[in-house]
């Protein structure tokens, strides 16, 4: 009996220790690289990034909706991790928003998506810094269409981006305000 109890306890511990998705607290959450946002329990954190992001959050599952965080991205590093040596995919510290939006479109197309479109970048403030914002859309390899937007700023510590995407049929409209809330609450700590 005691052995069963120990096993059950072990399983419970194992469950929490090995869960791939972590809950998000309703509190300020450190994403990494000095970036923090106000969390909410509607989100789930995927610790290993998707598409080379430093963190990925989702509500219904990464194939349906996601917020990707890129923090302190340095000069000369590729935006997404492709595991290949492609200088033409590297982020450069002197890039403009126009060039970052182009890079974003390239990365999406190379990830196997079709009908990739990016909107014109607009100047906005992000985490209190002069930044930019652009919309984007694409169809995943099975043809499901996604809408999204990217907000970011280039700082002395590197590039910071928060990118939201959700299915055009439902998730984009359903979760965009939650994503806007994350972006609106973003702070970048200056050391």
């Amino acid at each position: 009996m005691r052995r069963v109890l120990v096993l059950a306890l072990g399983l419970a511990v194992g469950l929490t220790a090995c869960a791939r998705f972590q809950p998000v607290q309703r509190d300020r959450v450190a994403v990494g690289g000095g970036l923090s946002v106000m969390g909410s329990a509607v989100w789930n954190r995927f610790p290993v990034g998707v598409l080379g992001a430093d963190a990925a959050w989702t509500q219904d599952g990464l194939p349906l909706d996601r917020v990707l965080f890129y923090v302190a991205h340095g000069d000369g590093t590729p935006l997404f991790e492709h595991g290949r040596d492609r200088r033409s995919l590297e982020y450069r510290a002197n890039m403009t928003a126009t060039e970052i939006a182009d890079l974003w479109a390239s990365e999406l197309a190379l990830a196997g998506n079709g009908d990739v479109r990016t909107g014109a970048p607009q100047p906005v403030r992000f985490a209190g810094l002069p930044g930019f914002r652009f919309d984007y859309s694409y169809a995943n390899p099975s043809g499901l269409v996604f809408d999204g937007f990217v907000v970011g700023a280039a700082t002395a510590k590197g590039l910071y981006l928060i990118a939201f995407a959700g299915t055009r049929a439902h998730h984009f409209l359903a979760y965009r305000s939650a994503a806007e809330h994350l972006i609106g609450s973003a702070e970048i700590a200056v050391e």
């Binding site: 469950l15 090995c18 998705f21 809950p23 329990a41 789930n44 509500q59």
Partner: peptide, 8 residues
């Protein structure tokens, strides 16, 4: 897989 549960 139990590890893929979404806590939310």
């Amino acid at each position: 897989d139990a590890r893929d549960r979404l806590p939310s």
